[in-house]
Amino acid sequence: MLETIAYSIFNGVLYGTLLFMMSSGLTLIFGMMGVLNFAHASFYMLGAYFAYTLGLTTGFWLALILAPIAVGAMGALVERYGLRRVHQYGHVPELLFTFGLAYVIEELVALFWGTVPVPYKAPAVMNTTAFTMFDLDYSWFKVFILLVAVVMFVGLWLLLMKTRAGQVIQAALSRPDMVGALGHNVPLVFTLVFAFGCALAGLGGVVGGIQFVTDPGMAFMMGPIVFVVVVLGGLGSVPGALVASLIIGILQTFFLSINFSLAETIGTLNIEDSGFFGVLWHMEATRIAPVLPFLLLVLTLIFRPRGIFGKREA
């Protein structure tokens, strides 16, 4: 059991940090602009593909920096020429715009890079074993993921708390109209925040594309989970996104790692494995784990719509 717990915490943190890389950008965008960007995971995907293509010529390390910048630029274009136009019609069309955009990006990625996963890999040095815990090897790459996430969190925190630009963003997160009244160019701030959020997702993609598989389906699979993190953490709250990412990462990993079902633990009590309650009684924890985030999403929205750290409701 100790093994399982230690293991769940470590791997959950690892998975959680990847979730955080994606959701931190989304929570900024959501909190500030009220736009729940359905295409956010698509920018994550673009990050992976850009890094793969750039990496072929520049090598991984340069691609690690260039790819998020390229994704950020794409994000800026989308905000400037797409979202801003739709903004006047209200939040629902904005949401629908990003919904359609996600489809288009996925198709374009499949068009240019093909439907087969691309062979996007970490540099050879990072595939060597860094340490071994309970007989399982952990590569330097996993350590690197943690490192990137920590640097990202600290960087974000410093940016938001200690710089002037961060102060404006902070202010715009809670009182966008007031910031505009104070003479700041709110549309420009919006474009920059959107681009920055996309770049963060792109960075997540650079790393996540290696950890998982880089294929056109990666956005579609990650998308809903990222929403869950943002809602659970609280809209616009970066620390909230971090905590929620870790909670979901650890909880999901734990459910997957244990061998548990009500029937096995308490006894079958002659309940047959059929009918609604019977099936639930016999349901293994591993089978529940993937729907856990959505259960959390619904429960959060019912009982605490502002999330763990959020200051205001959606």
């Binding site: 009220g34 939040h91 809903p224 869950v228 349901m283 089978r287 729907v291 619904v298 929205l301 409701e313």
Partner: peptide, 28 residues
């Protein structure tokens, strides 16, 4: 209880939950 994004997200979550359970509760 709430409209807007909260409602949209609840329906998204419910949709995923029902769809996932459709493969779990094979009797129905």
């Amino acid at each position: 209880r709430r409209a807007g994004v909260v409602f949209a997200m609840i329906t998204l979550g419910l949709g995923e939950l029902v769809h996932s359970s459709s493969l779990m509760f094979t009797d129905f």
